[in-house]
Amino acid sequence: MTIAIIKYGMGNVASVQKAIKKMGYHSIITDNAYEIEKADVIILPGVGSFKKGMENLIEGGFVELLSKEVLLNKKPFIGICLGMQLIATYGNEPERVKGLDWIKGEVIKIKSDNLRVPHLGWNTITVKNNNKKYKEFNKEDYYFIHSYHFLTENPNDILMTVDYGDSLVAAVQKENIHAMQFHPEKSQEAGIQLIKKILDSYA
């Protein structure tokens, strides 16, 4: 199985590759359309602003390619942090821009009167109670660092939530699309096991 980590100039791709290697999977860091089409799984990591992320996806010619692979060919997709936010309909960092629109919803600033923003550090996630496949990860701690959060239109798309003032979306899942706000590659064993669970189900 070949895993393509998309290189689009938005941050820390090396850590994602390192974590995947620990699980015994082979991955490539690539911006090449042919390699992405050939890959069995696509991972979109990323840190930075939503607007810059979308600009880079558009300039790199990734938008149609990724939408075709993920929506049409149903290729397994894992989005991490900004890579999760970009699949929303709209983002707002720093201003309102259109996203990939794979999962309906909008990424908005974390509202806080007495909480520090960014939401930074290890926080406990809750897996949606009817989900059997990911039940084992309920109440695990993951590493978060974000100032914006994904407000999904359809609650059925939510896989995990995290409490920070409000209950925020920590992970979404819809068919072959898996995406998380936290950084599994930075969350030690809990993170490695989660990614492994997703990859193993496609291996």
Binding site: V47, K52, S147
Partner: peptide, 14 residues
Amino acid sequence: EFIKEAAEVFGNQC
């Protein structure tokens, strides 16, 4: 002012 320059490129969280 370098803080602003850096955040513009890399995002404030890092």
